[in-house]
Structures are given as structure tokens and as C-alpha cells.
Amino acid sequence: MIFFVALRKELLEQWRSHRLLVTAVILVTFGLTSPLLARFTPEILGLLPGAEQFSALIPPPTVADAVGQYLKNLSQFAVLLALLMTMGSVVQEKDKGTAALMLVKPLPRWAFLGAKFVALGVTFLTATLLAAVAGYYYTLVLFEPLDLWPWLALNGLFLLFVLVYLALTLLCSTVTRSQVAAGGLAFGLLILLSLMGSIPRLGDWLPGRLLSWGGELALGGSTPAWGALGVSLGLIVAALVGAWAIFRRQEL
């Protein structure tokens, strides 16, 4: 099937361009260091001259700190990576002429776009899985074992959160004429969603809530955020369908 032909090319590109490697290294690094930072921050502070009194004020680190650090660090860097890696994915091919070269062939535009999204998704899935293993192991060593399924659920929700930004940035890359414009527009959307997420009640419906839900799940208690889950899935679908609807009308 033609989609898998396009996907094979995109996956090969992820590999050859070292995007998969870079994403994996960054996420694994934060997966490893987050429990470490949570565990040793009070001790590090205590070693700093003049900061001993602050060290005494910090409560002893718990597994909740490790999970919190993991989510905070990973989400910040993963979203930035998602923007950087996706902003040029369509606009660059249009600009360089590879899109025109390929799309006069029997390669439908939906497959062209869809393969890009899935390949980026696979890259982040792989990197998230590796980061999850690293984070789980160090949390186990430094704190206590986490329940496996909730931990996987946390990482699944984190991945869904990243996929929202991947899809939105892909849409931006489709509608704009330059990589910088695509990146700027995507960053604007990121800021907008973050600001909206801080509004009480409204935030419960936005992708950012997936992270806190994941954190709660991993620590044993949870208030499900099905609304945020539905909105996130809806945003992904809307962004992809929107990108396709615009791209199929674009002249190359």
C-alpha cells in the first residue's frame, strides 16, 4: 500500500538524519536525570556554601518528586523537539521542490502528510519508551518501585500530549511558506494553549491536563481527565484533516 511506501521513506529519513537518535538521547537523558535530580537536589544544595539552611527547609524527596521532575523535564524538551523537528517537514519539501517531484507521481497527498506524522510519532514513541525504561529504573533504584501499568499510562498520556504539538506543527508547516513562519506559528499555538491551560476549569479540557492526570495515575490516585483526552485527540484529528484539506488544494 502506498502509505507504507511513504512511511518507509520517512522512517528511513528519521534514521539517516539522526532525528531518532537525537530525540532518544535527549528524552533518555531527562528520563535518567529526573529521578536523580529529585533525589539529590537537597544534598546538592546542602553542599553549596551558605545554602545549608535552605537544604534543611526542603522536605525529604519522595517518589512524587521524581515523577514530577520526569514529567516537567520531558514535556518541556519533547514539545520543543516536536516543534523543531516538524516545522520544516512539509514547507521544506515544498520549498526545495521534492514535494512537487514526488506528487506528480501516484503518491496521494494524504499519504505524503500522514506518513510524516506517523514517522514523527514513531520517533517520539521509541524515544518515550526508552525514557520510560530509564526513568522507571532510576526511580526504582533511588526511591521505590512504581506500579508498571500506571507508569506506562503516564508515558502514554505524555506521548499523546506531544502528538498534539506534532500535529499542530505539521498543520503550520503545511499552511506557511517558510520554515521560520511555521515555527513561529507553532510556537504561538504552544504559548496560547499553555496560557489557556492556566485558566481554571478551561485547563481541565486542554492537553496540558494529560500530564497531571498521568502524574496522578503513576502515584496511585487519579481524577480522570477524559475531557482533556477527547480534546487532545480531537485537536490531532482536526490538525491532520485541516492540513490535508489545505494541502490538497495547494499549487506546487
Binding site: E13, R16, K96, G97, T98, A100, L101, V104, P106, L107
Partner: peptide, 18 residues
């Protein structure tokens, strides 16, 4: 089926450099 019957060389052909 037009795409299956034609070939096209643009003025500046851009193939994937990698």
C-alpha cells in the same frame, strides 16, 4: 491515473539528498 502515465523533470530537479 494521470500520474501513472507521465514522467516529469522539473527545471531544478530536487531528489532527497540523503
Amino acid at each position: 491515473g494521470l500520474a501513472r502515465r507521465i514522467g516529469c523533470l522539473p527545471e531544478e530537479p530536487a531528489c532527497y539528498p540523503w
